[in-house]
Write a protein that binds this DNA or RNA. Structure first.
Lengths: 125, 125
DNA sequence: CGGAATCCGCCTCGATACTG
DNA sequence: CAGTATCGAGGCGGATTCCG
């Protein structure tokens, strides 16, 4: 049984360019998005924690992606007015439910990496 | 138990920028990649089939993404030397095993779209 | 500490036109 | 039918500088 979009009544379908699901797919299906959601699976993390956990991410992309996740309602940003400042990032309930498919993707890559690399070498012929 | 990278012996870890898993994540985590893999889940499809199934994809992105998937060993490209030409795309065994996590992601979006839209409106305040 | 602001090269992506 | 070629806008992403 498909889900129907509130308002339009049309069935949810990522294959349809104008379906709201398409934009969400575009937001979620990104390298940094996946890594941040997955990193927050264990619980609250500070900005610097994330920066060090996710090797190779720049300040700009971290901030930018976090803002996107926040405005999509996946992540909560909490500012503690202390000196030095402290900002915590946590998954919302919605973001929490996204954990499972995201983690599944990461785990698939990690467990199959040797098969993948072998397939790439074979495909390169 | 983690997977270890053949050759280096290091544990597979997408959080590490230099780990080969990171590049694969970058290739897989994309709007078009997800849609193509998911579309091919049902079986072989021709170029034009894919073009019509995935609403809004340009010829360029379809060709480009298919080539990427092919060189990563997820998809097989078969050319039939007929007139008019016919090209079939099929998931390899590896690509087939990727179906599960990809479909899980698509399904999560489609079933939760109304929650997501509500959360976005709430986050926008 | 947790950003914001700015600059900038490059690559992505889409639109258009053309081809065997 | 299944692409290739080209172009141009925009976004990605890194580096740097500055701030409360």
């Amino acid at each position: 049984m498909p889900t129907y979009i509130e308002g339009s009544g049309l069935p949810a379908d990522v294959y349809s360019a104008k379906c709201p699901t398409r934009e969400i797919l575009d937001h979620i299906a990104g390298k940094w998005t996946v890594l941040i959601i997955d990193a927050l699976a264990d619980g609250t993390m500070r900005y610097t924690d994330l920066r060090h956990r996710i090797d190779g991410i720049s300040q700009k992309m971290l901030t930018q992606t976090l803002r996107q996740l926040e405005s999509d309602g996946f992540v909560t940003r909490t500012v503690h007015p202390t000196i030095p400042p402290r900002v915590d990032y946590t998954l919302t309930e919605l973001g929490h439910s996204l954990r499972t498919p995201i983690a599944a993707l990461r785990e698939w890559i990690e467990t199959n990496i040797n098969r993948i690399e072998a397939a790439r070498r074979a495909a390169a012929l």
